[in-house]
Design a protein around this nucleic acid. Structure first.
Lengths: 187, 187
DNA sequence: TCTATTTCTAAGCAAATGCTTAGAAATAAA
DNA sequence: TTTATTTCTAAGCATTTGCTTAGAAATAGA
């Protein structure tokens, strides 16, 4: 028995996510969020509690968004080739209109480090581990690899993804291709 | 014919560098710089002009500081082995008392991206290119490599360094070793 | 010792930050 | 239509931000 919200929470979070993705956490103010999300501060706080709350929802939305490409990796059954495809898929995924956004999770880990809100940091680290597990599962498809090799190569690939994410913000497409092609020579 | 400064500019920049390194640019306030550098805001502004000015000096100081390990790579004549040593040297270099600082330049590129002060961004990119050139020069010591291979592998190694820098902030020593050992199988 | 010049302390500035709130506007149910 | 309840607008809160400044303290040269 009352007025209903004039905005869709999922939609405004999608917009907020873009802003955080481009600018980082600290460089995104609540005033900027207001404009981008198209709603008043009151609505932001009543729906999400705090700037941190908005960000947490953005991380969740990001996970859903990137599921489009992690899903492909998850379903692939051609081992290392599937992982390589994931690296290329990520590059396409991280491209903005002006390019160069990297990965929201990686960006945030780098920005906030250990100083960030514990709940957010936990969410970020769990994402990283999910990806690493995904990489390990694809590696396991090669029955010649020992468990030890899989663990080592998963650490290698996970770290390489961090590098790719950061590099995607500053290097050319050609340079990024050099990286991927060389990175997969010996797996 | 006047009073002389009660602080050494090099010394206070060294302290400021540590703060920026740990916290990032935006998460370091002038008040925090005051405390860490042990001098008043007036002194900060009269010596360095602005927060940006302090940071620029910190980048320069960082370049000098890291010269300790880039010098080793520069003087090495055992090709890829020297580069691998550089990767390990970097890990030791980036370790704080509590570990996990990464690379000041990489951290800043990631944080500020294209939004950062142009002078600073230029300085950061020039550093990245210097490292890449250094890597390429070491690769050239292997006379079997073509110019094309060298360019590809330099891009590969430079991107791997970005990954290592970021990973050093969140992964264990063992995992980082996995990365390095696997990364150099490809060369 | 005197004085011109600099450095220092500490208070203060406007603007921006995250967040709150009073009251107007809207609307589902009675 | 009335009313209870919610959402909305817009002003305002204390705090922090980068930076400035007035005046006290120090000191090198006369």
């Amino acid at each position: 028995m009352a007025r209903s919200k004039q905005y869709n929470e999922e939609e405004v979070i999608e917009k907020a996510m873009g802003l955080f993705w481009r600018n980082g956490y600290e460089n995104t103010s609540v005033r900027m969020l207001e404009k981008e999300m198209g709603i008043n501060q009151f609505s932001i706080y009543s729906s999400f509690g705090s700037k941190n709350g908005v960000f947490l929802e953005c991380i969740k939305a990001y996970k859903k968004k990137i599921h489009r490409i992690t899903e492909i990796l998850e379903k692939s059954n051609n081992g290392v080739a599937g992982i390589k495809q994931y690296f290329y898929d990520f590059l396409e995924f991280s491209k903005d209109d002006n390019g160069k956004k990297g990965c929201l999770v990686t960006n945030t880990v780098n920005e906030l480090g250990e100083h960030g809100d514990p709940i957010i940091m936990t969410e970020l680290k769990s994402f990283f581990n999910e990806i690493k597990t995904l990489l390990a599962n694809s590696l396991k498809q090669d029955k010649n690899k020992t468990q030890e090799t899989i663990e080592k190569q998963a650490n290698y690939l996970a770290t390489s993804m961090l590098g790719l994410s950061l590099a995607s913000k500053i290097l050319s497409g050609e340079q990024l291709e050099d990286f991927i092609e060389t990175a997969f020579i010996n797996l």
